[in-house]
Simulated assay, not measured.
Amino acid sequence: MTANILTVDDSASIRLTTKVTLTNAGYSVTEAVNGAEGLATAKGSSFDLIVTDLNMPVMDGLTMIEELRKLPAQAGVPIIFLTTESDADLKARAKAAGATGWLTKPFDPESLVKIVKKVLGR
């Protein structure tokens, strides 16, 4: 069974790179352009994993995670931050909000697939 992954990023080029990388690895990918759209998409569908940027307009990734974690259906869904940020305090805040992992942009496609496989356990 193919894992369904939601990617949330305001950068079209990052969304494309992420989608191509994950699709080529055999995953099904749905995209959202900001945290608000990501939250709405996650509420309307079932995902095995969410990969999100931090800094986005409308709703940032941290707020989206906090909102997702309030929903019983989203409580156990792994969430990976894919962001340019690498601040230790921010990583701690993200973990406290419910983030499962962190990957810094620019990212190596192989590293993304490796972390996705590890988080999904497949």
Rank of each mutant, 00 (worst) to 15 (best):
V58K: 12
P57F: 02
P57A: 04
P78F: 00
V58T: 13
S46E: 14
D48K: 04
M56S: 07
N55R: 14
P78I: 05
T84I: 11
V58F: 02
T41P: 02
I80M: 13
G44C: 05
Q74S: 14
I50A: 07
S45K: 13
M59S: 10
D60W: 01
T63I: 10
L71E: 14
A75M: 08
G61T: 06
L68F: 01
L54G: 06
T83V: 07
T41S: 11
A73W: 02
T41I: 02
T83K: 07
E85P: 04
L82D: 10
D48N: 11
I80L: 15
L71Q: 13
V58A: 10
M59G: 10
N55H: 12
E85D: 13
L54R: 02
T41Y: 02
T52E: 09
P72T: 14
L71A: 10
G61M: 08
I50E: 01
D53C: 12
S86F: 14
L82T: 06
G61V: 08
A75P: 00
T52V: 08
Q74Y: 04
T84V: 13
D48I: 03
M59V: 10
E85T: 05
P78G: 01
L68V: 01
P72C: 08
D53M: 12
D60G: 13
K70M: 12
G76N: 14
Q74G: 02
M56E: 05
M56G: 04
R69L: 00
K70S: 15
K70T: 15
P72R: 11
G76P: 00
M59T: 09
D48G: 06
V77F: 04
S45Y: 06
L49V: 03
D60F: 01
D48R: 07
K43D: 01
E67S: 15
